[in-house]
Each structure stands twice: as C-alpha cells, then as structure tokens.
C-alpha cells in the first residue's frame, strides 16, 4: 500500500483550488479497506506528525494542511 501520508496529501492538493478543509469522512474514504476506527488512528497520527491540522466550527471538526486556507488569515493566527 502507498504511504497514507502521500495519499492524503495528493487528495488535498487535488482539491486545493476549491477548499482547504475536509471532513473526517472525506479523508477516511481514501482508505476504503480500513475500518473507521483504524482510519481515525491513521488520520489523527497525521495531525500529531504536523502534516494536518484541525479546524473546528465548535460543533464540527475539519482537517486541512497547517496554515492554509483563507480562515487562517481572517483569524489572525498565522
């Protein structure tokens, strides 16, 4: 199997013209053979490794590449 990190990065880059943040389900769908809770471990590991970062609406959490997206500027947290 290809490096999960590469799979996630490739997917995010392919969508980067439209949006910078993704739901867990969007990323988990990249690993159809995995159980959801395995995918959870993998994707959260990417957060711990600094590959991804969380963005929370308060009620929902999304994932994106650190520092990307227009909110980053709007929130003044560069």
């Amino acid at each position: 199997m290809a490096d999960p990190k590469e799979i996630v990065l490739e997917f995010i880059h392919s969508k980067s013209k439209q949006k910078s943040k993704f739901y867990f389900n969007d990323l988990a769908a990249l690993f159809p053979e995995m159980k959801m809770r395995e995918a959870k471990k993998l994707i959260n590991q990417l957060v711990s490794d600094g590959v991804l970062e969380y963005w929370s609406s308060g009620s929902t959490t999304m994932y994106g590449l650190p520092g990307t997206g227009k909110q980053a500027g709007a929130e003044g947290e560069e």
Binding site: Q18, K19, K21, K70, Q71, G73, A74
Partner: peptide, 12 residues
C-alpha cells in the same frame, strides 16, 4: 472571497 472559502460556506 478573501476571508472565506466559498465551498465551505455553501456546505455549511
């Protein structure tokens, strides 16, 4: 368009 990502606003 400078402050928000339009697809995310649409999806919200």
């Amino acid at each position: 368009d400078n402050l928000c990502e339009i697809p995310l606003a649409v999806a919200a």
